[in-house]
Design a protein around this nucleic acid. Structure first.
Lengths: 120, 120
DNA sequence: ATCGAGTGCTCTAGAATGTCAAGTGCTTTA
DNA sequence: TAAAGCACTTGACATTCTAGAGCACTCGAT
């Protein structure tokens, strides 16, 4: 995505990971996929309504990076399955940390009503 | 930023947190600020070269959300200090998780050399 | 005393990125 | 038979980020 700092001050893997995770939808995708594998449109919905263009692109990236595995189950009534690879699954720690934090500090959302929350 | 899903399926705080954290530079800012408070330009550099416009905007958001505190120390030889509030500091768990993950799985970066890494 | 660099920002224009809407080819459900 | 689902792609459009200059001012060096 951007590659310009690297020459500067010795850059560490954490920086790159952050770059990766902050890309739009990535964390949502990981979170959804941690719960269960999903199909394409299904994933789009689970993630909160990402549009297909971006989703396809992001999934391709994640697959390329080896975080996500794509399995085509049948060609003509199209059926695909996206799931996390080992590296991807190991991100559960990150999601869990966010989860924990969210429950303690979530200014904007606390005011609203959050009763059901176990949805999808 | 975007507010369109909310009417749909009861949305949880985690979703919002992810939205928050995936905004460009936010995680970098938090990471930098976890190590120490920074001035504006200083922070821009620590973060890996965010441009001033975006940085100012992001900091304003974070301040508004109560994650970051801005202290103006002197007006005319301009001196500002940005530091994390409690909620912000508690994000160290998230950063730590990313840190751990990064050291185990960082495809693109592992190939490179990463000796010094304590920079800045 | 003047130059150059640094402080914290804001402004404008342009590049990058994400999104919407529609369409493809085919199956299942109503 | 019609409508809706699947997994995507393409092209136009919107939002977001960036580069770069500039402001008002101080400090260290020449």
């Amino acid at each position: 995505m951007n590659a310009k700092v690297e020459a500067n001050h010795t850059y560490c893997p954490v920086y790159d990971s952050i770059e990766l995770l902050q890309a739009k939808w990535v964390l949502h995708i990981v979170r959804a996929l941690l719960k269960a594998p999903h199909g394409f449109n299904e994933l789009g919905r689970a993630v909160g309504g990402a549009n297909t263009t971006t989703l396809a692109q992001r999934l391709e990236q994640l697959e390329h990076l080896g975080l996500v595995t794509k399995t085509v189950e049948s060609t003509m009534p199209p059926k695909t399955r996206y799931e996390l690879s080992e590296a991807g699954r190991e991100l559960h720690g990150v999601i869990a940390a966010i989860d924990t934090w969210a429950q303690r500090f979530m200014p904007a959302c606390q005011a609203h009503g959050a009763e059901v929350e176990r949805a999808s």
